[in-house]
Nucleic acid binder design. Structure first.
Lengths: 152, 152
DNA sequence: GCGAGGAGTTCGTCAAGTGAACTCAGCCAC
DNA sequence: GTGGCTGAGTTCACTTGACGAACTCCTCGC
């Protein structure tokens, strides 16, 4: 492709990174996918500074990846918890792809620290590139990037 | 799963982010996938400050995602170019997943600024979650995360 | 009223990103 | 050879962001 003429400023990767590209954002989402919902639990499991966590949770809510819903445990006062929205849940494949890469290249002795099993059958889950016609796509070389003209 | 006992410090997502989680890293890789190889072109297409670019290219080389190979254009002095390694190329699904998310939630009027076609058949390419038994996995709810015990 | 704990906020410090200016090396024209 | 051009950095002053500890506020149970 002609990489010199494509308008990078509209790139969806750049856009996505402007939403979840800050430090801790994707890790917050990882915790959310593991079921964490409360501020104190995010803080404990991530070890991020409170101020940063407040900020990240705030922008994730603002961007619509999490919602802040009130809840009340018995014998406690009302609090808020953070839950994934559909927009947030749709980042799951991204996280899985990142994790798979880390498992391949970073895990000690190739042992993945966390295995994902299909709930129905127990088989391990992975990401795959496919085309709409059903072919398996091996990598970037099998793909032709086609920039779309900007609507006038 | 019991999210309170799993050792987050070994998480492959955190590990991967420590390699490519800094600002500009994934965008540098995006350009590399689009065929950019030279410092000046990275600089021009990304608009990142030179110092940051020097640093990011350096760490990506150091981490083995890019290699720095000398080349010489006719009539010019010898220079270096940066090429993706297998380790770098394997981040392709991650970038595609991020891009797909951005296309869905950020692109104006749902028009993806860049379409990926399967080179063989022209059909659009996307990422999918599947299990080893071949089932389609819809999302996080279909997945059971199982922490692996740390080797003693 | 008192203490505890969740959920932040504030603050001083330190690291990282930013843009402009400067450097350095080789090639070319003269 | 001299001077200019270009690619690839480096340096610097400045601003932004991250860090950890300390502080606040609110509410519940006692």
């Amino acid at each position: 492709m002609d990489e010199s003429t494509w308008d990078r400023s509209r790139c969806s990767i750049a856009g996505a990174l402007s939403v979840v590209g800050e430090k801790w954002s994707l890790l917050v989402l990882r915790e959310a996918f593991l079921g964490v919902r409360r501020f104190a639990d995010f803080h404990r499991t991530l070890g991020a500074p409170r101020a940063v966590l407040t900020d990240r949770l705030g922008t994730l809510v603002e961007q619509g990846l999490l919602t802040r819903v009130p809840y009340q445990a018995e014998g406690e006062r009302q609090r808020h918890e953070y839950r994934l929205t559909a927009k947030g849940r749709d980042l799951y494949p991204t996280l899985i792809a990142l994790m798979a890469w880390g498992d391949t290249y970073l895990a000690d002795e190739g042992r993945a620290p966390l295995v994902l099993q299909h709930r129905e059958c127990g088989a391990p889950v992975r990401v795959e590139l496919v085309c709409a016609a059903g072919h398996r796509v091996e990598g970037a070389r099998d793909v032709r990037p086609v920039p779309q003209s900007r609507p006038a």
